[in-house]
């Protein structure tokens, strides 16, 4: 059996606004559009992924928050409706997805061997979180690949950002080992924004782009610093400043997704492809892809 490999790593933010703006048949809410910079960026990245041969998507989501270890989806199918608890007016999505349970179990076992507390989630009534749904829908609208969702253990809340970095890196290493041993080709997805301070009011028409802007300039400057660093291939340096970035911008990186993904990819020193940056209800969102293949890596933006 050939060794498995990570064929791409995506930083894929999950504002439900982007699905809402797309008006897919699965979503009950209707919009007049909006947030095109991000949506067009997602469409471009989705086209790239279509041309890559892969078996599964493994996604780390901050909206499945666990405090007792890291949990993995452990049933082959989940079919239900995901309603965003914060933006139910925008996101009521009927999903029907498949899980690569074999890969999920292998990653759980590898994580456990790394000393991480783990749990398989095998309750059929469990509702898959909207972060998973949003990122996966935008990267693969046909849902024709199985996924594995990994929960976000909130180490940063209980201990410190440094402990979270250590644990998320260990989890990434374990997942990479399991992928290699599985013989599968896998796309990794870190599902989150960068800066994450929201406005607490919503425009009467949420997709009114005349009302959309970053919450404050400080968030923008920090976000641009991160974008510049990942564009320059400085992923280790990104991790080094992650505690300060997270604190200063209330960043969604606190969940550990980007650290997990970069750790799994061995902290790449090649540039990330940038597909777009835009604010959503004040938060800062970048779509980026780390393509380890020198022949297919592009300079997108």
């Amino acid at each position: 059996m050939a060794k498995g490999q990570i064929v791409a790593g995506c930083l894929a933010p999950h504002p439900p606004h982007l699905v809402y703006a797309d008006n897919p048949p699965q979503n009950e809410a209707y919009s007049e559009g909006g947030w095109e910079t991000l949506r067009w960026g997602y469409q471009r990245l989705a086209r790239k992924l279509k041309d890559i041969d892969y078996d599964a998507i493994v996604i780390f989501t901050p909206h499945w928050q666990t405090y007792i270890g890291t949990h993995f989806l452990g049933l082959p199918e989940f079919k239900s409706k995901s309603v965003d608890p914060v933006f139910p007016n925008l996101f009521r999505y009927n999903y029907d997805l498949q899980v690569d349970v074999e890969l999920s179990e292998a990653m759980r076992e590898a994580a456990s061997e790394e000393g991480i507390i783990t749990k398989m989630m095998r309750n059929p009534d469990f509702r898959v979180d909207y972060g998973t749904i949003t990122s996966c829908h935008l990267l693969n609208p046909k849902w024709d690949k199985p996924i594995v969702t990994i929960s976000s253990n909130r180490n940063a809340h209980y201990y410190s950002p440094e402990v979270m970095i250590e644990q998320a890196t260990a989890l990434g290493r374990a997942c990479a080992k399991a992928i290699e041993e599985s013989g599968k080709r896998v796309v990794l997805v870190a599902s989150h924004s960068l800066s994450h301070r929201h406005f607490v009011e919503e425009a009467p028409l949420p997709e009114d782009m005349s009302k959309e802007h970053i919450y404050n300039h400080s968030q923008y400057v920090w976000d641009m610093k991160i974008v510049e660093m990942i564009r320059d291939g400085k992923s280790r340096e990104v991790i080094d400043i992650m505690p300060e970035f997270t604190e200063q911008t209330i960043a969604e990186t606190e969940g550990g997704g980007l650290i997990w993904m970069l750790g799994a990819m061995g902290f790449p020193d090649f540039p990330a492809e940038i597909y777009g940056y835009q604010s959503v209800i004040g938060t800062g969102n970048v779509i980026a892809c780390w393509d380890p293949n020198d022949d297919t890596r592009e300079y997108v933006l």
Binding site: Y67, V86, K119, M121, N123, V200, E201
Partner: peptide
């Protein structure tokens, strides 16, 4: 996040599963 939300659905029916204690 958007201010204060107030549950107003006359009959709220679902099956809930906890994120940590799903087992």
């Amino acid at each position: 996040i958007i201010g204060h939300q107030i549950q107003a659905l006359e009959k709220a029916v679902w099956t809930h599963v906890d994120d940590d204690f799903h087992y």
